[in-house]
Design a protein around this nucleic acid. Structure first.
Lengths: 181, 181
DNA sequence: GTGATTGCAAAACTTTTGCATACGA
DNA sequence: TCGTATGCAAAAGTTTTGCAATCAC
C-alpha cells in the first residue's frame, strides 16, 4: 500500500543526457544541491524558533531529499530513507515533509497523477515544469519573460500573486524520437 | 460525505461585478455557453460512434454543466442536477463527467484543494486561472504572448505539448481591498 | 430482447490523525 | 524530567469499481 507501484516516476537524471545541452537552465538537477549547508541552517533556525527537535529521523530525511532526485513522492523518499534507517515510518516522513515545507526548505508539487511530489526550495531560481506523459520524466525550465507577463496579468486583475504553477504536459524529446521511428 | 462542506467554491459569478471591467477577456463566465448546441452535437457524435446511449440522466447532467458556474466540483454538480432528477447517483455523475471529458466536451481541472473541477471545453479560447486562496474565487485570463513563449520553451526542449496548466494563486482584488481596510 | 446504464454500497488510494511509547534537550 | 517525536494502525476524504436491477435502442 505504502511502498510499491507508483506509475510515473522522475528518473534519476543521468548526468550528461542529451537534454542538458538545451538552452535553458536545468543545472539544478545535475548538481545535487551543494547548497545543502544553507538548507540545514534554514531548518535549524526554524526549529530552534519553535522548540522543535532535530532527531535522527529528521536528519536522515533531509539528507535523503537533498540527494534524491527532485520531484520524488513520499513513497520514493520513504523507500530511500529506509536504506539508512530501516524502521522509519511513513507518518514520520509525511510529517517531516510537512515541517520542511512549512520551514521553506522544500516545496510540494502536484502534477495531477495523484501523488504529491517534493523538491528543494530554491528561491533564487523559480522554475516551472515540462512533464512527459509517456515516460514520466520531468524537466525544469525558467523563462523570466513569462514571469513578467504573468505579473502584468495579475496586476490588470488587481490580483496579488503569492505562488504560481505553470506546467506543460506532453511528450519529451526522447519519447518523441522513439515514437517517430 | 458526498454533498456538503467544500471549503472553497467558485461563487456563481454575479453579472456586472467589478472584475468584469478589467482588460482581459473573462466573457466566457458571463454568458453561460450559448454554444450549447455545438456541445450537444459533439457529444452525440461521440456517443453514436461508440454505441453509447443518451439517457435522461446524461441529458440532465450536460444541461446542468452548461448552466452551472464553471469550475464546479462533482458534489456541486450532483446537488444541482438533483434539483432536476431527484434520484440521480454520485457514480452516474462521476461516470458521465468522465465520458464528457473523453468526448472533449468538458475539461477536468485540479487546483490543489483536493477536488476535481470541471469546465466546458472551448477550444477557441484557451485560458488560464487566477485562484484566490482567501475566498476561493476563480478568474480566467488569456495571454497569447505567454502561450507563444511557452511554445518556444517547449520547442527548445524538443518537447511536444499536448496540454498545459498555468495558475496564479494569491488574493483577488476584492479580498485585497477588504483586507487592506 | 440485448447490451448499455444506473444507483447503491463497498473498494481503492493517498493523505491525516490518535495514541501509547521512545527519545532529545 | 518534560514535552516533542515516532510508528503503528485506524480514520478521512475523494475517486473508482462491482453488481443486480433498469432502461434505451
Amino acid at each position: 500500500m505504502a511502498t510499491g507501484d507508483s506509475k510515473t516516476t522522475a528518473s534519476s537524471a543521468p548526468p550528461g543526457r542529451p537534454d542538458s545541452s538545451s538552452t535553458d537552465s536545468s543545472a539544478a538537477q545535475e548538481s545535487r544541491h551543494d547548497a545543502g549547508a544553507a538548507l540545514w541552517t534554514k531548518l535549524t533556525e526554524y526549529m530552534d524558533r519553535r522548540g522543535l527537535r532535530l532527531t535522527g529521523q529528521r536528519r536522515a530525511i533531509l539528507t535523503t531529499i537533498i540527494n534524491a532526485p527532485e520531484h520524488s513522492t513520499l513513497d520514493e523518499l520513504l523507500e530511500t530513507v529506509r536504506k539508512t534507517d530501516k524502521h522509519i515510518g511513513y507518518a514520520t516522513v509525511y510529517r517531516t515533509m510537512k515541517m520542511l515545507t512549512e520551514a521553506g526548505v522544500v516545496e510540494e508539487r502536484k502534477f495531477g497523477d495523484g501523488y504529491t511530489r517534493y523538491e528543494i526550495s530554491d528561491e533564487s531560481h523559480h522554475h516551472d515544469h515540462l512533464i512527459c506523459q509517456r515516460c514520466g520524466h520531468i524537466t525544469e525550465f525558467e523563462e523570466p519573460l513569462i514571469e513578467e507577463l504573468q505579473d502584468r496579468v495579475a496586476q490588470r486583475h488587481g490580483f496579488k500573486v503569492t505562488s504560481h504553477r505553470h506546467e506543460l504536459y506532453g511528450m519529451c524529446r526522447k519519447c518523441c524520437e522513439s515514437t517517430a521511428e
